[in-house]
Structures are given as C-alpha cells and as structure tokens.
C-alpha cells in the first residue's frame, strides 16, 4: 500500500530525513516513534505530499508521490490525515467540516455528504454535536470529529500525526478507543505517536526514528521486549518510566 524507498529530505543545509525506507501493507498498523525532532512527522507528511522530499521515492497504492505529474489533490483525497492540533475548520459547524471535501472533492451531493457525515459522527459518538462549532467542543471531541472528517472521504489508509499529544490526559482514551476500533476493522494506518500502550495493542510493526534515520523497523512485540539499538533502549526507558 505504502512504499517508502531511500527518502532523504533537507531544510536548507539541515538534513531531516536520511535514506529512510519502510513499507506498510494493506490492513497493517505501523507506529512511528522516536524523540522529538527525529523526523517522524516529516516522514508521514511526505507520504501525502504535504512535505516535498529531495531524494528517494514514495508510492501510495502504486502512485508515486514525488512525481511532478501526479495529481496530488486526487491522491490526498484517498489518504486520510489526522493532525496533532486537530485542524478542524473553526468557521464551519461540525457537519460542514465533514461535508466540505466530500462535496467539493468527491462531488457528492449535499444530502449524500450529510448522511455520510451523520453516520460517522454517530460512530465516534458525537452525533448530538453536529451543529456545534469546533470551538465549542473539547479537544478529545474535536479530534474524534477530525477522524470522522478523514473517514468521510473513504480513505484507503489513514495517517495520524501525534493525534493525542495535544490532548489533556483524560481525553486521550476516547481518541485511542476510536483508533483501536479502526485498526481492528482492518484500516491501514500509520501513526506517529508516543502512546506505547496503543502500539503494543494494535501495531503490527514499530518504526523507531532518530535524527532523520529509521533506526529500527521491527514487529511491535520484538521492539518492546528486545530493542536492538542503544538509542531505542534509551528512548523506551525514558518514555515508559515517564
């Protein structure tokens, strides 16, 4: 589904991704973790072309992201993304947030889009909040709406960029519950997260990054029980004893 091959990226003279390679098969859940500034967010933003990269190739469902001939908006419409700061559109009600791209990008009718939106809000337990504005919702609720918004496009895979790190601790659970459910239903997911409980529960593999490099790419159980590198050990020790 997603193939990342030898991707390197620089911001000016600073290298932020160094020869990164990994892959995500259909129905797989892959967790990307690592210290801050290790390039994890940058890597997943390269997957839907929000960030350009200078070397290597990324293909999603056989379509090359870096190819200038690729219709990026069309590809992005099929790849859902959930952001750290939710990024709901604050000037639109929840239902409008869910309907906008369905109508403008997929060409669905208003009725179709609304029906799909309601069904998804129901699914994330927020049907009663359809008419509210994002500012009237808690962080956890906003993030669940953001997941519903991504799902409304019927994506072939979902990218999560630290979906719980901007949340108050008591709201993390409600968002993770939705994510676990999605994973169990077989959604292809790439999650940048520090939620190691989530990773243990649903991740097939864990990709550990440091300084723009993929240091480890291992089955989740092996990564947690016997991390191969010193850097991963240090990282895990720090994050698990926290």
């Amino acid at each position: 589904m997603i193939e990342i091959r030898n991707v390197s990226k620089w911001y000016g003279p600073t290298q932020v991704l160094a020869d990164a390679s990994t892959h995500v098969a259909k129905g797989e859940v892959v967790v990307v973790c690592g210290p801050s500034g290790s390039g994890k967010s940058t890597l997943i933003k390269c997957v839907n072309g929000l960030e350009p990269f200078q070397q290597g190739t990324i293909t999603v469902d056989g379509i090359s992201v870096g190819d200038p001939k690729t219709d990026l908006p069309r590809l992005r419409a099929r790849v859902g993304m959930v952001f750290q700061h939710f990024e709901l559109f604050p000037h639109m009600s929840v239902e409008r947030n869910l309907a906008l791209a369905q109508i403008k990008v997929l060409g669905r009718s208003k009725e179709e889009a609304a029906a799909r939106g309601v069904a998804l809000l129901d699914r994330v337990g927020l049907r009663a909040h359809a008419h509210k504005f994002p500012g009237q919702l808690s962080g956890g609720q906003q993030q669940r709406v953001a997941i519903a918004r991504a799902l409304a496009m019927d994506p072939i895979c979902l990218l999560f960029d630290e979906p719980t790190s901007a949340l108050d601790p008591e709201m993390i659970g409600e968002v993770l519950d939705v994510m676990v459910e999605l994973a169990q239903e077989g959604m292809t997911m790439v999650c940048v997260t520090h939620e190691m409980g989530f990773a243990r529960k649903v991740a097939k593999r864990v990709v550990f990054m440091d300084h723009g490099e993929i240091v480890e790419d291992a089955p989740a159980a092996r990564f947690f029980d016997t991390p191969a590198s010193e850097r991963a050990k240090t990282f895990l020790a720090r994050i698990l004893h926290h």
Partner: peptide, 19 residues
C-alpha cells in the same frame, strides 16, 4: 495547519483559499 488540513482532504489551492 489549516492549509495542510485542507490539502490533506484533497482540496486544490483555489478551493483551499476560497473555503
């Protein structure tokens, strides 16, 4: 982030600007 979110949904540049 708003631009990223709009583009991640597949909206084009003009659509992102207008909506």
């Amino acid at each position: 982030g708003q631009v990223d979110a709009a583009q991640a949904l597949g909206l084009g540049q003009a659509q992102t600007m207008v909506h």
